[in-house]
Amino acid sequence: MGLLAYGADGYGDELLDGALVTVQLAVFSYLLAAILGTLMAVLTLKPHGLRWMIGRVYASVATGIPSLLVIFLLYYGGTEIVHALLAPFGVEERPAIPPMAAAVAALTFVYTPYLADLLRSALQNVPKGQLEAAEVLSVPRRQIWLKVLLPQALRIAYPGFVNIWVVLLKDTALVSLAGLTDLIAAAKVASGSTREPFLFYGVVVVFFILFSAATIRLANRQSRRLDRGVRASEA
């Protein structure tokens, strides 16, 4: 257990730093994906037209390729992509993309359509009377979205959102292959120099299981709060 000590003798601090990177990465990508996913769900709500087509093609690409490939693409080619995006505005810059930013952007790119799909079908399952009632009361358009439709859709989509959170958390493990020093990279270094791989990878497994269990527990409590005032169906 001395190997897990905090400080110069053990690898406790390295592992903790790595875990912090993992958690940061997961939280940032998930929040960004949730915001963009909401936007995408609202924009592609009508199942026809150009926006819907673009949304379908994007979702098909993002869900059809591994996230590690996207991470590599943004990590190696991010500078060129940003340059190509900025060039039309007369900005001739080639900014270096930090690995963390590339990883967050990649995971956001991959997980946005998953969350958008969940939210879109939830929006379609909000009882129609809610929208009609709000329109009859001439509630402003923006208020209808923010105060009537989206909160109810979020409640319906909530279990799916929690699922995706767990999947994304485990997917962050891949970023160590792209050179980010997350928890897995820290464990790899530690087990390489101490020849105790079982111990360190065991710690990583325990961390992932406990952390996802804790977030699921928190989410379930929140879900009960969201569901107050809604009668459970008998079926």
Partner: peptide, 22 residues
């Protein structure tokens, strides 16, 4: 189920490849 579903697959790979030969 809890262990093998909860752990990311890359960690299981490392466990089998580097850990078991211990």
């Amino acid at each position: 189920v809890a262990v093998f579903r909860g752990a990311p697959s890359i960690v299981l790979l490392y466990l089998v490849y580097a850990g078991l030969p211990q």
